[in-house]
């Protein structure tokens, strides 16, 4: 997505050196970020990186140990009520009531936004239609499919027509089609001018939705930029090969080092080696030739686009999967 035309440089979300410790567990270790009006900012990171903690702090659910958060220029922890009327929160850290109908859920949220009974009802109807849930409006949410559930949850966060929407892993666990539907809904909201702070574990989701990304690991932002900038940093495609015989790992590594454009990374557990390549076809052919010349039998030879793992690899030197929860690390 193209970033909207700049209307002055106005940060609507500002986090300044936010730290959050739970006892000895350091969930956030000094995070600063700015999100402009109308921008989609993606927080990308593995489980336990601190994404949800940061969203919960910005949404006024949790107080930071230190640091300052401004939403729409208002301090989120000195004047949380003013911030709450401007934001909508959905995703894994928000939810709806199973035993209530879709309509009841939205009406209750509307009432709690301090709308009149009639206004809460009008807004509920509007959102049900927008989320294509009008037919299911009077069914209990427990009868909804996974996708409908996410839509009513997203809908609940829209009742107050928030300027700032915070979506915490909005599509985790959804099937590809439902995920795509939800992306389209999010695109629409962004097109209407909503500022969006999004957390995700998936690079493709960040790529699809975000104008700017912050890569978060162990409670720190370790890289920031547009998706293109980050991918450039990764060196684009990676060539991967695995020997049929584990004893040949070092020979495979040597060949990849010679055809690739960077340091090869050896994944002992999966018994594969990968290396960044500038030209995928040339490198693949060169590697194929080299393996042929040395009569090496392979179990895997492929070129892949960068994944979240690769982002982590390039920036931190370890894979996202290797990362442990900060709780376990401390």
């Amino acid at each position: 997505m193209k970033r909207p035309v700049e209307t002055g440089h106005q940060a609507i979300i500002q986090a300044e050196n936010v730290v959050k410790h739970y006892g000895d567990v350091h969930a956030l270790n000094g995070i600063s970020l700015e999100v402009d009006q109308g921008e989609v900012y993606g927080l990308l990171g593995p489980n336990g990186a601190g994404k949800t903690t940061l969203v919960r702090i910005l949404a006024t659910l949790v107080k930071p140990t230190s640091g300052r958060c401004l939403v729409g220029g208002v301090d989120a922890h000195q004047n949380p009520m003013a911030v709450r009327s401007q934001i909508g929160l959905a995703g894994q850290s928000a939810a709806v009531d199973d035993l209530l109908t879709g309509r009841e859920n939205l009406e209750i949220v509307g009432r709690l936004y301090q709308f009149s009974r009639a206004e809460a009802r009008r807004r509920a109807d509007d959102i049900l239609e927008r989320m294509s849930l009008t037919d299911a409006a009077d069914r209990q949410v427990r009868t909804y499919s996974g996708g409908m559930r996410r839509r009513i949850d997203l809908g609940a966060s829209l009742v107050g027509r928030p300027e700032v929407l915070m979506l915490d892993e909005p599509t985790t666990g959804l099937d590809p089609r439902t995920r795509n539907d939800l992306w389209q809904l999010i695109h629409q909201l962004v097109a209407e001018g909503t500022t969006l702070l999004l957390t995700t574990q998936y690079l493709d989701e960040a790529d699809e939705l975000a104008h700017r990304l912050g890569v978060i690991d162990q409670g720190k932002i370790i890289a920031e930029g547009t998706p293109d900038e980050l991918k450039e940093r990764l060196g684009g495609d990676r060539l991967q090969a695995g020997p049929a015989n584990p004893a040949d790992m070092s020979r495979v590594t040597a060949i990849l080092a010679s055809v690739g454009d960077g340091e090869p990374y050896v994944d002992e557990r999966r018994q594969v080696v990968s290396v960044p390549v500038a030209d995928r076809i040339t490198s693949l052919l060169a590697a194929g030739q080299a393996f042929e010349d040395e009569s090496l039998t392979l179990s895997d030879l492929s070129v892949s686009r960068p994944s979240l793992d690769d982002v982590f690899l390039a920036i931190t030197g370890k894979t996202a999967e290797d990362d442990t929860e900060p709780g376990a690390a401390a």
Binding site: M81, R84, A94, A95, V96, V109, Y113
Partner: peptide
């Protein structure tokens, strides 16, 4: 968490 995020 939803309730806590609302101006209630």
């Amino acid at each position: 968490d939803r309730f806590r995020s609302l101006p209630m």
